[in-house]
Design a protein around this nucleic acid. Structure first.
Length: 757
DNA sequence: CCGTAACCGTTGTAGACAGCATGTC
DNA sequence: CTACAACGGTTACGG
């Protein structure tokens, strides 16, 4: 069956673009989408393999909506994916906007775009803040919709869909999903048409390698055994016939190890490869970057979250251009960007789960990796190859993965930990303001669709609501549940209620807090990503507890914070130590080496603590103004990675980490001293232009101050010890305070000894 | 004397969303 | 508190 683009109700401009790109007709599954009512406003679940044209379907539907005055929201799970889609959709005659945590215009301004690409969390946040344009969305596209079943973030996605549907009755929803076990249920939930197909534009062969050959279903392919390791031989084989290979492994160490092995087996020498290697080392001299550069020189690379953003990009680009022949990667690449290769080699189908050990990965994830095989239009076929260790293992791999059906996905929203913030969000945004409304909201969820019996959900909802009340987040007025100021703030700041309570309790009980204490507290919250403990860390942690134990604000196994485990507490110490180094101006390279982590990890930690400390500051402003100044200072120090002494300088526009440090070292430690020194002397350190503008700025601020206008937040350097009183404009709402628990039992909590790991 | 294989106990284990207000070298 | 593989250290063996 052929379907020409001519007959489709899409704008002519878009059609021309498609023609120019060589698209003449639709793929079979795309035709089914049209038949199922894509252009008739019908909801659709499209469950087809990766790279079989889902994006195109969504794009056509979006342009169709825009042409008749509609507005579209495209939801993705990763920020990297958001920019990828932004690029895909750009330049086709409609306005595209991008909304993610670290890259957004003013929320309201975003409403002028025709298509808004956003992460699910960002949409959640926009819904909580009742952003105006959200209600004018006519088409909602959910990319990777199967992530509804994801333990960590699935509930957010589910709630976003439910809330959007709740607010807008005429909304069309298109869900793009990988192959899952129960697509019919997903479609049933949304009363959607289901498009399901295994069709791929490039043929995919799945097989298992064992003793020198790949066994496919029915056929066999010999692979020359030039080297010892199976994955190396498989790579050499592919490269030899002109393809590229992607090797999936389960740990970073394995990724680096495999890349090294394969690189030396390849032994390429090309100027293009050397250029990439040089670029890697340009802004990043850490150990990982050096190892990576060495591998890339010979044609292979590794990829994992420890790499810096730049390094990751360079690897991805290099592979896409064909310069880099092999990437050995952790699952970062499996779920993320679209980076196909002719052959995908899957080294291990296990993953470590704390508490369970090595666990087999879900079939769905195997499919996701295998689906990366075969570049449409470039490769004659794609191959996914598993590695068998014995005759019986080969059979098992076929049975358990290649021939196995994908798992069913289930709703994740009926768990206490997610319901806490979900219900708070419902109440705080006036989505639901009493128990019945809360339940009725959840009756529109995927959970309710799957589990007809809602008695469990009902019970847990009332329990969670009561808990929120105990936390001081909501008040139950009988007829109506209302969010307290504290609760509303928590919801809008996008903090986990448990984090908020931890922050509030810890600050409330203390006269003095130190940066390290705050860092540890924030690292211990459920919102923070923590570093693993290694046995080598024991000594360091013990030492820090001895030195700085008094500063710690919360105790291990704190009875108030039942969610704070024993390990979490020590992980938080380690993580806080790393961040303390960061604000102590220890270089990234040094930190990386000291704790055997990569620049990417450091970035991730700094980023995470950065928004948490901002949240903490906003909480402090309302609840505990006495600590406001110290936390505001800490926020600035984290953002720039500087010591306290640079604070007065870093506040100047045009002065960052490096310039502030060189000014300070040259003896100019305050804005006052800089002004007195004059443009000429300062220009020698920071250049003429910056010198002029900062001195101008200093003078402006001083005039502002003299005239009694306190709004200039420049802290006059010569009076550092006379700390400015934190400004606080409201009264503390007593209802929002937490006055529970026996404070004295917790006071000295920082002192306990570390026992063993 | 050295290299290798074989063995054994020890060690470490993936990922990255959100707020906010603007500007580094 | 799970299970697996890679690593480091040691020993045994063979050239």
């Amino acid at each position: 069956m052929e379907l020409s683009l001519e007959t489709l109700p899409i704008p002519d401009g878009l059609r021309d673009q498609y023609y120019a790109a060589g698209i003449r007709s639709l793929y079979p599954p795309q035709i089914t989408c049209v038949d199922e009512g894509l252009f008739l406003g019908r909801n659709l679940i499209i469950s087809i393999p990766t790279a079989s044209g889902k994006t195109l379907v969504a794009e056509m539907a979006m342009h169709h909506h825009i042409a008749s005055g509609g507005k579209c929201l495209y939801v993705v799970p990763l920020k990297a994916l958001a920019s990828e889609k932004y690029d895909d959709f750009s330049g086709k005659g409609v306005k595209i906007g991008i909304a993610t945590g670290d890259f957004d215009r003013k929320d309201e301004l975003l409403g002028r775009s025709d298509i808004i690409v956003a992460t699910s969390e960002k949409v959640d946040s926009l819904l909580r803040n009742r952003t105006g344009w959200i209600s004018s969305i006519t088409l909602l596209v959910i990319d990777e919709m199967h992530l509804i079943g994801d333990e960590g973030r699935g509930a957010t996605l589910e709630m976003v869909i439910a809330t959007m549907r709740n607010r807008n009755q005429n909304l069309q929803v298109i869900g793009l999903s990988a192959t899952i076990g129960n697509p019919k249920e997903l479609a049933g939930w949304l009363s959607a048409g289901l498009v399901q197909s295994d069709w791929r534009p490039v043929d995919l062969r799945e097989g298992v390698y064992y003793k020198g050959s790949i066994r496919f279903d029915g056929s066999k392919r010999e692979v020359a055994s030039l080297k010892k390791d199976a994955d190396t031989n498989l790579c050499l084989d592919t490269i030899q016939e002109g393809g590229q290979a992607l090797v999936f492994v389960s740990s970073r160490r394995n990724a680096e190890g495999a890349a090294k092995r394969i690189a030396s087996a390849l032994g390429l020498e090309e100027p293009a490869l050397n250029r990439i290697a040089d670029q890697i080392l340009e802004n990043d001299e850490s150990g990982v970057a050096q190892a990576l550069a060495l591998c890339i020189k010979k044609g292979a690379a590794f990829h994992h979250a420890g790499l810096s953003r730049d390094a990751r990009k360079l690897v991805e680009e290099g592979f896409r251009k064909g310069t880099i022949r092999v990437i050995a990667s952790t699952p970062t690449l499996a779920a993320g960007l679209n980076l196909p290769a002719r052959r995908v080699i899957i080294n291990s189908l296990h993953r470590f789960v704390p508490g369970e050990g090595q666990v087999a990965i879900p079939v769905r994830e195997y499919r996701q990796m295998a689906g990366r095989a075969g570049r449409p239009g470039l490769d004659p076929y794609g191959e996914a190859v598993l590695i068998g260790k014995s005759e019986s293992a080969v059979k098992e791999l076929f049975r358990e993965f290649i021939c196995a059906p994908a798992e069913e996905i289930d709703s994740q929203c009926a768990k206490k930990s997610v319901l806490l913030s979900r219900i708070l969000a419902l109440v705080a945004s006036n989505e639901a303001t009493d128990n019945d409304a809360i339940l009725s909201f959840f009756s529109g969820s995927f959970y309710a669709f799957r589990h007809r019996n809602l008695s469990y959900l009902t019970r847990i909802c009332t329990r969670v609501t009561r808990e929120l009340e105990e936390m001081g987040m909501v008040v139950d007025l009988g007829s109506r549940i209302e969010a307290t100021v504290f609760g509303e703030l928590t919801s809008k700041l996008y903090l986990d209620p448990r984090s908020s309570v931890m922050i509030q309790t810890a600050f409330h009980e203390r006269e003095t807090v130190t940066p390290f204490g705050i860092l540890h507290l924030l690292c211990a919250t459920p919102d923070m990503f923590r570093l693993f403990l290694r046995s080598a860390d024991e000594e360091l942690i013990e030492h820090v507890i001895e030195e700085q134990g008094e500063e710690i604000l919360i105790g291990e196994g704190e009875h108030l914070f039942s969610w704070l485990g024993y390990d979490d507490f020590y992980q938080a110490i380690k993580t806080a130590i790393v961040l303390q180094d960061w604000i102590g101006e220890v270089s990234v390279e040094m930190i990386a080496e000291r704790y055997s982590i990569g620049p990417g990890d450091i970035h991730g930690l700094v980023d995470g603590i950065g928004w948490l400390v901002h949240g903490a500051r906003e909480l402090c402003r309302r609840e505990m103004p006495a600590h406001l100044q110290i936390i505001a200072d800490l926020e600035l120090r984290i953002r720039h990675g500087v010591k306290e002494e640079l604070l007065p300088l870093i506040r100047l526009r045009g002065i960052g980490r490096v310039r502030a440090r060189s000014l300070f070292n040259s003896g100019y430690t305050t804005p006052g001293e800089i002004r007195d020194a004059g443009v000429e002397k300062i220009a020698r350190i920071v250049g003429q232009k910056t010198a002029e503008s900062i001195i101008q700025e200093i003078q402006n601020k001083e005039i502002g101050k003299r005239s009694g206008n306190q709004s200039g937040n420049l802290e006059s350097g010569e009076k550092r010890e006379k700390k400015k009183r934190p400004r606080y404009d409201g009264k503390v709402n007593d209802e929002t305070r937490l006055d529970r628990g026996d404070a004295s039992t917790r006071r000295k909590s920082g002192q306990q000894r570390i026992l063993d790991f």
